[in-house]
C-alpha cells in the first residue's frame, strides 16, 4: 500500500513537472522579447511636450513643463529637453548624445540659467535620478527601451495588465558593476507582445528589495507609431512618485540639427 502511494505521488510530481516544462517551452525567449521592444519604431525624429508631476510621500506636488526634441543620426541619437515652467527652472536645458557604440561614453550637457553656462556633465551615473524626478538618466535616455547588454533575460510567465496580455521577463544585471551603475540589481519587465512595448517594470535595489515600479498608463498611435503618453513611476523606498505626461507628439515635422548644440541650449526655445 505504502509502495503504491509512493508510486502515485511520483507519477503526480512528474506530471506537474512535465506540464510546467511544456508551459515554459511555450514562452518566448526573454532576450528576443526585449530585442523586439528595442526594434520598435520611434520615428527618425520627434518633437513633444512633457509635463512632469512630482509628488512626495505627503502628497505635495511639484510640476514642470518642458519641450523635447529627439533625432536619430544613423544608430546614434541626440535628445534635448528645454524647461518652460515654472520660472525658477525656466530655460534649464539638457542635451545628450547617445552613441550606439558601447565603448564610447555618451556626452551630456546641462544649461543652468542662473549661471548662464553650459556645464559638461558626467554620463557615467546612469542610475542617478533625473532632475528631481523618479526617472533615472538611463530611463530618460532609453525611452522605454532596454540596454540589451546590461542584463540576462528569462521569461517567467504570462500576466494580464489592465486587460492586456503580457509576458513577464526577469532581467538580471550581468555584473555588480552594471548593477551599481544602474542603481538596481534586477528588473521584472512586463512586455506587451502585440505592440512590443513595456507596460510595466519593477526594479529591485542592490540588496534585492523593491525599488520602484514604472507603469505605462496610456499608449496611443501617433503618425503610425505606438507612443507612450502617460508614465507613472512610484519609488517604493522614498514614497516619492513621478508622472510624465506627453502631449503634442509630432513625428512628422522635421527637427533641425541646430537644436542639438550648446548654442541652442543657451538660446533656449
Amino acid at each position: 500500500m505504502k509502495m503504491l502511494k509512493t508510486t502515485l505521488l511520483g507519477i503526480a510530481v512528474m506530471a506537474v513537472i512535465s506540464v510546467g516544462s511544456a508551459f515554459a517551452a511555450d514562452l518566448p525567449d526573454g532576450r528576443s522579447l526585449v530585442e523586439r521592444v528595442n526594434a520598435l519604431d520611434e520615428g527618425e525624429h520627434v518633437t513633444r511636450n512633457l509635463h512632469m508631476k512630482m509628488i512626495d510621500r505627503h502628497g505635495k506636488e511639484r510640476e514642470r513643463d518642458t519641450v523635447s526634441f529627439r533625432k536619430y543620426y544613423g544608430d546614434d541619437k541626440k535628445t534635448v529637453i528645454f524647461y518652460k515652467t515654472p520660472s525658477n527652472v525656466k530655460d534649464t536645458a539638457f542635451l545628450t548624445f547617445d552613441y550606439k557604440n558601447e565603448s564610447v561614453d555618451d556626452d551630456q550637457w546641462l544649461y543652468l540659467p542662473a549661471m548662464r553656462k553650459v556645464r559638461r556633465i558626467s554620463a557615467s551615473d546612469r542610475g542617478d535620478y533625473f532632475l528631481g524626478t523618479d526617472f533615472t538618466y538611463e530611463d530618460i535616455k532609453k525611452e522605454g527601451k532596454v540596454a540589451i547588454e546590461d542584463y540576462t533575460y528569462n521569461t517567467v510567465g504570462e500576466e494580464t495588465i489592465d486587460g492586456t496580455k503580457t509576458y513577464k521577463v526577469e532581467a538580471v544585471t550581468v555584473d555588480a558593476k552594471t548593477a551599481k551603475e544602474l542603481g538596481h540589481s534586477k528588473a521584472i519587465i512586463w512586455i506587451d507582445p502585440k505592440i512590443n512595448l513595456v507596460r510595466k517594470s519593477l526594479y529591485y535595489d542592490l540588496n534585492g528589495n523593491e525599488l520602484k515600479t514604472l507603469i505605462t498608463k496610456e499608449v496611443r498611435k501617433v503618425d503610425g507609431i505606438w507612443t507612450r503618453h502617460v508614465l507613472d513611476v512610484q519609488n517604493h523606498k522614498t514614497g516619492h512618485h513621478t508622472i510624465f505626461t506627453f502631449s503634442e507628439v509630432d513625428y512628422k515635422t522635421p527637427v533641425e540639427d541646430r537644436r542639438f548644440n550648446q548654442q541652442s541650449l543657451r538660446k533656449g526655445l
Partner: peptide, 11 residues
C-alpha cells in the same frame, strides 16, 4: 577645454 572622464569632468 572640457571633457568628461567617468565620474569626473575636467574644465
Amino acid at each position: 577645454a572640457s571633457n568628461a572622464f567617468g565620474d569626473f569632468t575636467m574644465r
